[in-house]
Simulated scan of single mutants.
Amino acid sequence: MEGWTIDINCDVGEGIGNEKSLMPLISSCNIACGGHAGDIKSMIKTVKLADSHNVKVGAHPSYPDKTNFGRKVMKISNSELKQSIIDQLAIFNEILQKEDVELHHIKAHGALYNQLAKDSVLAKLYLEAVSEHKNQVYLYVPFKSVIAEIAEENGFRVMYEAFGDRNYNDDLSLVSRKLKTALIQEPETVLEHILPIVKQKKVITLNGEEIKIKVDTICIHGDTPTALEILMYLSTELPSYKVQLQK
Rank of each mutant, 00 (worst) to 15 (best):
P24A: 02
L245P: 03
N135V: 01
E2Y: 10
P24Q: 05
F69H: 00
S42K: 04
V203L: 09
G58T: 04
L245A: 01
L183E: 13
E19R: 00
A129L: 01
L122I: 10
G58Y: 04
A148T: 13
M23N: 01
I220N: 00
I213R: 03
Q244K: 14
C219N: 08
K45Q: 14
L116C: 09
M159F: 11
L125R: 02
S62D: 09
L183T: 09
K214A: 12
A90Q: 13
Q97Y: 11
I218T: 10
L49E: 04
L195H: 06
I8H: 01
L89A: 05
K72A: 07
W4H: 15
M159N: 12
T5S: 13
D165E: 06
S42R: 02
N135R: 08
A59V: 13
I85K: 02
I230C: 10
I76Y: 04
E210P: 02
L112C: 01
E229Y: 08
G34D: 02
Q185R: 13
D7M: 05
E188A: 14
V146A: 08
L191N: 10
S240Y: 11
I16V: 15
S62Y: 11
G34Q: 08
K56L: 15
Q136C: 08
L103D: 05
S28F: 01
V137R: 02
G208F: 06
I204H: 04
F69N: 06
I6G: 03
A151Q: 05
N169G: 10
L228S: 08
W4R: 07
A117Q: 08
I44G: 05
K72N: 10
T181E: 15
P239R: 01
A37L: 06
L195S: 07
V121T: 13
I16L: 09
Y113V: 00
S145T: 13
I40G: 00
D100Y: 09
K75Y: 10
Q136F: 12
G15Y: 06
I76D: 05
E99M: 03
L125P: 00
L81F: 08
F163I: 12
K82H: 11
P187Q: 12
E14N: 03
S235I: 07
S77I: 11
